[in-house]
Nucleic acid binder design. Structure first.
Length: 299
DNA sequence: AATCTAGTCAACCGCAGATCA
DNA sequence: CTGATCTGCGGTTGACTAGAT
C-alpha cells in the first residue's frame, strides 16, 4: 500500500469521536504494518473488545475498523478466491429464504464473509436484474432466479461433477467442482455443509438416508430430465411441456421440495404461471437474455 | 497512447440491539 | 432503571483495475 498518510487522517464522525476521543485516527486502506500489529495482538490476547484492543495495540484505528479488518481479511480461516458454483447456488437459495441477511447467509458458507457475499450479490445478481429490467426484489426476478438460473447452476455443477467423476467417487454429494478452486486455508466445502445442523435437519426423510449435503439435494432437485432439452429455458419453451405441465411443475417446486425443506416459498399465482411461455413482453425480456444461458455465464 | 466505462471489493457509515457501570 | 459504550449488521462509497473505445 502506498497510501498517503496525510490523506488517511480525517475528521471522525460523531460516532467515531465518541468511541475514540478526538485524537487523530487513520482511515482508508490498512498497511502491512497495521495488519501485522493487529494479527500479533490478537494472537496474544485474542479478539473482541475492539475499542480497547485498538488502543492497547496502539493502532490508530477505531475498534470497528479493527474488527472489520480482522473478520473480513486477516482471520486465518477466511477463504479467498472466486465464489464456486455450489456457493452461488447456496447463496441464491438462502437469499430467497432470508433476503439480505448477509451474516446469516455467510454462516452457511464457511470462510466467506458477509461482506463478500453482499458484494457478490450486488455486483453479479443485481446486475442481471438490471439487465432484465426488473427489480431484484420483484416476484418476476425471484422466479427467474429460482426456476431458471438455479437449475442452470445445477446443470453446470453436475457437468463439472461428471467430468471429474472418476475422482469424485465417494465424494459427498458428488460435487467436486469446488475442489480445484479451494486452495490455501480453504476447508472442504461439502464436508462443511455436512456439519451444518440446521441444513441436515431440513433434509426430508423421503429423500433417503444417503443424503449428504444440501447442495447435492439442490442439484438433485433442480435436475431436468435427461431426455428433455438440456437447457431449462428450452425445456419450458420448446413446447414439450404444456402450460398445464408447466403449472404442475412449478406447483411441484413449491409444494414438493420446498415444503419438504420447511422453506416458505410461495407458489406462483395463476396469472404468473404462464408468463414465461406465452410469448408476452415479460417472457421475451427473460428468455431473450441469451447471455444468461451462455455456458460461461456466471451469475 | 489516452480516455472512458464498468466491475470489483475493501472500507466506511449509521443504526439498532446488547451489554455494562 | 438509565445512560454510556460496545458490537454487529446492512447499506453505501470510493479507489483501483481491466477492458473497450
Amino acid at each position: 500500500m502506498d497510501s498517503d498518510d496525510g490523506n488517511c487522517f480525517q475528521m471522525m464522525s460523531d460516532d467515531q469521536e465518541d468511541e475514540m476521543g478526538m485524537e487523530e485516527l487513520r482511515r482508508g486502506p490498512w498497511t502491512v504494518e497495521e495488519d501485522l500489529t493487529l494479527i500479533n495482538y490478537i494472537s496474544l490476547h485474542g479478539e473482541g473488545r475492539w475499542n480497547s484492543l485498538a488502543r492497547s495495540a496502539d493502532l490508530k484505528r477505531t475498534g470497528k475498523s479493527c474488527r472489520l479488518r480482522w473478520l473480513n481479511y486477516l482471520r486465518p480461516d477466511v477463504r479467498r478466491g472466486n465464489i464456486t458454483l455450489e456457493e452461488q447456488l447456496l447463496i441464491l437459495e438462502l437469499h430467497s429464504r432470508w433476503g439480505n441477511r448477509w451474516s446469516k447467509i455467510a454462516q452457511y458458507l464457511p470462510g466467506r464473509t458477509d461482506n463478500e457475499i453482499k458484494n457478490y450479490w450486488r455486483t453479479r445478481v443485481q446486475k442481471h436484474a438490471k439487465q432484465l429490467k426488473c427489480d431484484v426484489n420483484s416476484k418476476q426476478f425471484k422466479d427467474a432466479m429460482r426456476y431458471l438460473w438455479m437449475p442452470r447452476l445445477v446443470e453446470r455443477i453436475q457437468a463439472a461433477s461428471a467430468t471429474s467423476g472418476a475422482t469424485a467417487a465417494g465424494s459427498p454429494g458428488g460435487s467436486t467442482s469446488t475442489i480445484t478452486t479451494m486452495t490455501g486455508g480453504g476447508r472442504a466445502f461439502d464436508n462443511n455443509l455436512e456439519s451444518i445442523g440446521s441444513f441436515s435437519n431440513m433434509v426430508p426423510e423421503n429423500l433417503g438416508a444417503s443424503v449428504s449435503s444440501p447442495i447435492s439435494e439442490l442439484t438433485n432437485y433442480y435436475h431436468f430430465p435427461a431426455n428433455e432439452a438440456s437447457d431449462p429455458a428450452d425445456y419450458f419453451c420448446s413446447g414439450q411441456m404444456s402450460n398445464y405441465q408447466f403449472e404442475q411443475s412449478l406447483a411441484g417446486l413449491s409444494e414438493g421440495y420446498y415444503s419438504n425443506y420447511g422453506l416458505d416459498f410461495q407458489p406462483m399465482d395463476q396469472s404468473n404461471n404462464y408468463q414465461y411461455v406465452d410469448g408476452g413482453e415479460t417472457s421475451d425480456n427473460l428468455w431473450n437474455a441469451e447471455n444468461i444461458w451462455d455456458t460461461n455465464y456466471d451469475i
